[in-house]
Design a binder for these strands. Sequence first.
RNA 1: GGACAGUUGGCGCAGCGGUAGCGCGUCCGCCUCACACGCGGAAGGUCACAGGUUCAAAUCCUGUACUGUCCACCA
Length: 903
Amino acid sequence: MLPKAYEPQEVEKKLAEKWQNAKLFAAKADPNKKPFVIVIPPPNITGALHMGHAFTNTLQDVLIRSHRMFGEDAYWVPGTDHGGIATQNVIEKKLAKEEHKTRHDLGREKFLETVWEWYHECGNAIFEQFRKMGWALDLSDIRFTMDEKRARAVFECFKQWWEKKYIYRGKRLINWCVRCSTALSDIEVEHLPENGKLWHLRYKGEDGSDGIVIATTRPETIYADAAIAVNPKDERYKNMVGKKVIIPLANRAIPIIADEAVELEFGTGALKITPAHDATDYEVGKRHNLPVMTVINDKGKMINCPKKYNGMDRDVCRKETVKDLDAAGLLVKEEKYNHAVSKCYRCGSPIEPFMSEQWFVKMDELAKPVVKAAETEALKFHPDSWKKPFLNWMTNIQDWCISRQIWWGHRIPVWYCRECSKKGLTFATDQQGKEQLTKVSFEDGAQPIVSFEEPAECPHCHGHDLVQDPDVLDTWFSSALWPMSVFGWPEKTPEMAHFYPTSVMVTGYEILYLWVARMVLTGLDFTGKLPFKDVYLNGIVRDKSGQKMSKSKGNVIDPLDMTAKYGTDAVRFSLLMQAVPSKDIPYSEDSITGARNFCNKIYNASRFILMNMEDIKGPLAMPKEAKELADKWILDRYATAIKTAREGIEKYNLALTANTLYHFLWGDFCDWYIELAKQRFQTEEKEYVMALCVNILYNTLKALHPLIPFITEEIAASLRPFVNEKEEFLLNQKYPEFDAALLNADALKQMEIVQGVTKEIRTIRSQFNVPPGLKIKAVISATDEQELSVVNAQAAYIQLMAKVEQLQIGTNLAKPKQTATATFGKIAIYIPLTGLIDFEKEKKRLEKDIAAAKANIASRQARLSQENFIKNAPQAQIDKTKAELAAAQTLLAQAEAALADLA
RNA sequence: GGACAGUUGGCGCAGCGGUAGCGCGUCCGCCUCACACGCGGAAGGUCACAGGUUCAAAUCCUGUACUGUCCACCA
């Protein structure tokens, strides 16, 4: 005998291995089939996968498995991302913790070796998780954004964009992360609210006057001030424009200028202009030809400022400056100020606007076709509410800073001749005593040679002393090429020809600009084709109270813990039940129990059917005919469920698919059909009923397989002999087709009556505490001919489901004494319960019925008496309202009679 | 400052023109020979607020409030 409860662990382990060994998920590239392709958003190799990965990948897995079962050439391309800064940070932390070393202690080469070792370790852990989750990824064919083929793609893109002059070198104010010691692109900066302070500082006049008071959040940058700006319309300062004031503590004179960028209302209306350390100020400075002075270096230390502060940390200097200003009587006011501060998206430390020469990609030309694709909806978002923000971002796009001053990543494929570029190259000796190129300046004469490998010689002087640019590319540069590079682009591979463009991109909305936008851009630029036509944006998995999960908050749920405890299918299904496009999902361990219970329900229903198959030989085909009401009804419900399940998949509404199948299997199939079928197991109809049961169950398992692959595969294996299926894996079988011929509105209506009457009787049983084992009598009096005939014909169902021993059915039957009364439609139900009835309770019940009926009658009558309703509403609506009125009137009459009888 | 989304029973959500559904929780009764990870039943909602369109509005429109997200150079 099988155990009572489903135990997923063994089953999942076995099947996960079996699927991989059978190469079930490998690329087929079948030219006769329509391809359905998803490239996985490659997880960073920064550690174990979290709930967000579990969610987005499960969605993709469902789509892939479904389309495979729809008969398409479905292929899900697996891979991981080297994750630039994020990964380098992880390794640096690890080094610090385990060996108390920095990356400089190791040197560039040794450090990179360490990261590669980590990649193999961490990568394997990730693939193991892929396998455990049952994701249909071929683990013997993994791509990595830093492997040889992907590196070729990166180079090709760089070269082409260089030749088209999209890639250029420029000196400008960029976002600098002091902690990660690298430049960042604009979208890698987060603007987070912070409880800061606003300091009002006095700049005395050069002529000894009181001068002007400015407001700033960054007093440590006063040493780099180039001017004070006021709005030209500002009457307060009109006559001060052109005069000079003295920077406090620095004792340097700067002019007061007028510029539109200054807000009249903010602070004092006077703004200090610090071109080197603020983006707005930089623009103002350019307009007024102001000098650019840098007082904070790339390490976040003060430079070029009064001696006292030189070498200080920028935040220490801030405190000291404020203290000294206060002492000098130049600190006018200090107020609390809540504002947004720019932070590094990888480490959270404050971003420093920093003057620096970097590599950029010019975006305006590249963006144009992307905008067009989104506007014409050749590129479609799900949900489409993302179209507008996407277009807004694309049309306001800034040039993309692609160089990073870190070690881990694709090295910029540019070389310099030490002779010809001499003046533009700065070298330093690292801790290993090796000379390293640390800084490249095109302004000072560095001449680039774009090449994948070290060029044999300098094209200018034929010298052989060449060095590579020290920077690496933004990690998103290689990600941007992912939908092409996974298929071997720029090579003209068969995979590229067959699988590109892909079908849908499934990912979180938080990387829509960082990643999705750039994939579309590269795809259109290099292939002229969109890399995918659909973008399905999934939500974020949050904790129970809607907070983002994070280690520091301690509210992280580890998917592997959950799968170990409840089974992978349960975890998957719990996520899918809430999978509405773009919607964040609150998640906790409680979310899983319902899904786990469902899996158990499937298991037990199957176990029950298998038990009853023991004396049946051989396969049973799906019966061609429905014999009785229950059969007609369940086939209708089944057909509808399959139709809706498919629609859910096609419309990316997997919550719809999950919920539909859940309720069909549990609510309809188990609670009603199997319960009704039980009595037929003792008759010669058994084989017929079992044929229906086993085929409906098997097909429902198929429909569920994309969502919960393990349990369905396991049970299907036991059922297979009975449904004459030879194929071993559900994935290779056909998804059930919707069959409109199975629809049966009449059966649906009849069954509704059976269920309604049954429920009324059950309620009475429950309310009067009739013991479950006690069979009762019931009198059913129906006035409507149709209803009467249904009750007459299906009396056996009602007797079975409501546990009624004697059922008396007729028209206008008198209410027996001492009964409980209920009404369904126009059907009166009397349950004689001599000795069991609690009169007070029954009175209350009836009074409640009466009140409800009265309210119903009033509202329907009101509506029917409206001339406009009769005139304008469709006939069906009028008929329906009339029927509802009649039913309510019947209920009222019956309840009132019963109440009178009670007294 | 701009844009978008949400506001439905205790909690989490679905519904998106014909007077409310689901899961969890709560309460009551059941170890009914597949399942107590179960079965049956009950309680619980003026669908944020105010206008409007319509015969009819949770559902469409406008505005308000609150919540959240994204974008944006008010120091």
